[in-house]
Each structure stands twice: as C-alpha cells, then as structure tokens.
Amino acid sequence: MSAVEVLRLPLTVDLSGFIALLQRLDVPYRVSEESGEQVLWVPGDQLAEQVRGLYARFPDGDPHFQLQVEAPKAPERVGFLAQLMHSRITSLVLLVTLVVAALTNLGDNFSVIRWLSFQDFQIEGDYVYFSPLAEGLEAGQWWRLVSPMLIHFGILHLAMNGMWFWELGRRIESRQGGLMLLVLTLGFSLVSDFAQYFSSGATLFGGLSGVLYGLLGHCWVFQRLAPCPAYRLPPGVMAMMLVWLLICLSGLITALGFGAIANGAHVGGLVAGCATGLLGGALARLRR
C-alpha cells in the first residue's frame, strides 16, 4: 500500500501533540521535510481521510479520543536508490569517504594519506616526522583542517563509521536540510581535529567518529528542546555511545591491542554537537 500525503504544514507548526496522538492510537505515519514544509504521510487513502478529520478536530492531540480504524498495512518501503537521492549530502560524504578509502588502501598507502592528514609527515625508517601545522596552512593547505575525517584504518573502522553517518546524516538532512548537514559535518570535523591535535600533539589520526559524536550530540539535545520524529533515536543509543566513550577514555581498548583511539576528537565532537543542538533546538522551540 502506497503512502498518501495527509497534511502539508509550515515548519513553524508544532505537530508533536498530534504525532503523540497518532502514536497512542498505533496509526502508522511518516513525517518528511520538503521545500521548507513538513509533510505527514500515512498508508492508504481511507486512513488518510480519517487522519485529516482527526487533525481538524484535535490538532494539538487529545488523550481521551480513540479512533476506530481497520488495521492498516505497513507503509511501502522506500527503495535504496530513492533514499540516496533524498539524502544527497549524506550520500555524497559517504561516496567521497569510500573513494578515499580505496585510494589510501584503508590506511596502508601513506603517500596518499600524507596529503589528507592534519599535518604533513615523512617516514624515515621506523620514525615519522611531522611538519608544523602552521607550515602547511601557510602553503595554502587549508583542507587539512577537515580532511582527516575521510581517512579510515581498516574495513571495520570504515564500516562502523559509515553506518552511523548514514543513520544520523539522513535524519539531520531530512529535518534541517543538506546544507545544514554539510556545515555541521565540516564544523564538527574542524573542532574534533583541533581537539585531538591539542590533546595528543603531532600524531596520525583520522575517521568520521569525531563528526559522528557531534551529530549524535546535536540530535540528542535538539530533540530534548524541540521534539521531532526525525531526531527521536532508539532507546539506549545515547547511553551506549557514552559508555563506549568512557571505555575508550579508560585506555582499555588500546591496552587490548586494538590501536590508539582518538579520544580528543570524540569528546570535542560531542561537546560541539551538544552546543549546536542547544542553539538549533532553542531556535526551533522559539519558532513554534
């Protein structure tokens, strides 16, 4: 059964009460953002008419009202290609990441990695010599401030980060647009890279994990201030990620031989994400 458009409203309209009513009534729905408007979808024409009537009577929700409807079928799943087109910036970032992973041979091709690392470096025998950061910036290599997010060391590192960016990036792109996702991604990369640089000094680091902690913090705080379906994460996700962060900070992962963890990048990204979520959520709440 195909999804049917029920309502098309400005982003300033607060749908949280009505969405809560649909959830209490077990009515399947989906909310998307299109051309600066929020669109409510349900499966089937019959259910769409009933939900329109329900909104006309109870736009803010009503805990005592019960809707008698036939058990609807699940909404039609959106194809993967359609998801890629709907989440273009998310897809673009992941595509560039995959290309870099191929060019760097998942962290083994240092001749390519040195052009994307936070600082340029030379390998002489068993030693790595890093060039000063200021030297690279003076040479116009400003991309180094954000490009480490594209470097991944191993297939597991790439798969985990790619999976989480696909999940979180699509949420932000659907709610706040592709341009905002791109700004947040580059901003969190910049902050997390500097945080790692100041915490560990001249070292080779990379990956999307600092950005991911930023996106996670953004969604979490934004949802607390201005609830919206797109940022409603599954229960326990935030707790799991914080527990993982604490385990990494303890040094246990490194001690077990799984390699060094960019803890500075994780903490820096999370703090930056909570800050942007606070600002974005507060502005969204004021608009409502």
Rank of each mutant, 00 (worst) to 15 (best):
V39Q: 04
L216N: 07
A202L: 00
T90R: 01
Q196D: 10
H218W: 14
N263S: 12
G140S: 07
Q176P: 01
A195C: 08
I89D: 00
L84M: 13
R170W: 00
D14L: 08
L190G: 08
S131D: 02
V267R: 00
L9T: 08
F110I: 12
L25V: 04
M240W: 09
R144N: 01
R88P: 06
C274A: 15
R24Y: 05
G201L: 05
M149K: 05
M1Q: 07
I113H: 00
A71N: 15
E49A: 11
L40E: 11
R57D: 13
L245M: 14
L145N: 04
L184E: 14
C228L: 10
G17D: 05
L158A: 11
H157S: 10
Y129V: 13
P72F: 05
S2F: 07
P75Q: 00
R171K: 14
E34W: 06
V183S: 00
I89W: 06
L252Q: 11
F18I: 10
S91K: 01
L25R: 14
V51E: 03
L242D: 11
L184I: 05
A139S: 10
L137W: 07
V267G: 05
A275V: 12
C219D: 07
E37I: 06
G169H: 15
P235Q: 10
V13M: 01
L256T: 15
A82R: 10
F65S: 07
F65V: 14
V221C: 03
V78L: 12
L252N: 08
E173M: 10
L270H: 06
R171S: 02
L103V: 12
M160E: 15
A272F: 08
L15M: 11
S147I: 04
L103S: 09
L225D: 03
H64T: 15
G269F: 09
Y129A: 13
Q141R: 13
S209Y: 13
G178D: 02
A48K: 13
S199W: 15
F165V: 12
F258M: 06
V51T: 08
L212P: 10
Q141V: 02
P229L: 11
H157G: 05
L168H: 09
L246K: 07
L92C: 10
G53V: 07
A284K: 09
G125I: 08
D120F: 01
M85G: 14
W115E: 15
C219I: 13
H266M: 10
A255D: 09
W164Y: 14
V39L: 08
V13G: 01
D193N: 15
L252R: 10
C274S: 09
D126M: 13
L150D: 06
L137A: 05
I247K: 01
V191M: 02
Q83S: 12
G107F: 00
L9D: 06
R287C: 02
R57P: 05
G79D: 07
G125S: 02
E124P: 04
A230L: 03
L9W: 10
E167I: 08
F18M: 08
D108Y: 09
L9I: 15
E33P: 02
F188T: 10
P43F: 01
V221P: 05
A159T: 12
S200F: 03
